[in-house]
Nucleic acid binder design. Sequence first.
DNA 1: TGGTGTGAAGATGTTCACAGCG
DNA 2: CGCTGTGAACATCTTCACACCA
Lengths: 214, 214
Amino acid sequence: MANNYLAKSNTSEIPSATISRLVIYLRILEELANNDIREISSEKLATLAQGSAFQIRKDLAYFGTFGTRGAGYTVPTLLRELRRILGLTRQWNVVIIGMGRLGQALADYPRFVHYNYHLSAAVDINPELVNKEFSGLKVEDIRDLSKIIKERMVDIGFLTVPQKSAQEAADALIQAGIKGILNFSPTIITVPDNIHVETVDFLAGLKRISYYIK
Amino acid sequence: MANNYLAKSNTSEIPSATISRLVIYLRILEELANNDIREISSEKLATLAQGSAFQIRKDLAYFGTFGTRGAGYTVPTLLRELRRILGLTRQWNVVIIGMGRLGQALADYPRFVHYNYHLSAAVDINPELVNKEFSGLKVEDIRDLSKIIKERMVDIGFLTVPQKSAQEAADALIQAGIKGILNFSPTIITVPDNIHVETVDFLAGLKRISYYIK
DNA sequence: TGGTGTGAAGATGTTCACAGCG
DNA sequence: CGCTGTGAACATCTTCACACCA
């Protein structure tokens, strides 16, 4: 891992599956902390995460050594480290693009604050929606997107526009300097390498189910 | 692939990543068909899917040979084959467990019919919701779940209950003979091997974003 | 000729076994 | 003594190169 200076073109990349698992571990640790459990072994954590103890130790090893040999992990410590690794210690500013039903539901979602996500703005192209307010968030004109993103230092965009406008909206976000996009539309959007996109597509999940149960 | 009878314990498993990609190819082919495009090469499809041509040919090769050497693939043919592979040629019956905001939104989602998914029922534990109607779907008592699933031959459950009740609701679904669960709650649910679960968790996606952009 | 289908090579991710340390 | 941390073995997935065929 460290000091293999001679590796051919060592991308030293951490598997994306590891990142997905860290998110799972984080959730479990939060629950353990809520229940005032202070110690956990990789074996027990594996049971809760439906994974393997090897895997957990390997996943964590990419980032450092957080446990105590012979004892296991201290819940609050590991929790703090996972939050740090996942970048959840600072506030992330979010803009919602598209205030249809889904955008409205997201505006009303109560748990963002808990995770240091802040809804900085909501925009839509539809003049009928502009200036309306949802859960205390006023809808602004999409033409002001660039200004909004820059002035309020928005980091992440929730893309909840109809499929047809998804790429266009994504382009506008990127143009304005967004860093990450949570794409709720069932379309592949094209972005530069330095932008990270995660897709939330329940229909895709549904189709995978039909494959497996047929 | 075929006739390797001697393989040690040949699970002959198709990579789950392949299934996820097939779903993507399907979506693209539907769009091509809508635009009356009848021919596509693996190379062009790869561009649209943001993947590689090798990968596409390999993914398809798990299931048969669908193209014409020298020519490429015929869109309607490949479309039909993908639908067959993914099990989208028959109707799937769905029950929604939990008619809160998310359950209501799903009940109102117009595109299920197009994909041969049929909303057979919606249930909730809350007496105030029972007998209410959402988008033409009447909420029934969760105590009747088992009867509903058996009588209406429900295949898939949308789990949209609060986190705390997720496992309990999943158990009820499994008990009643469901085959697949689309889990919208941010919790790992435990199920027997023969039940397939897909999780839709936008908060997890959001956390992965913060990791990558920090 | 052009693009698929596919064994083989290569890269990546997972599992293992055990050394190392509290 | 117990459980973590980790190099090495293994398994899986992806990429490649080219044979093959319309």
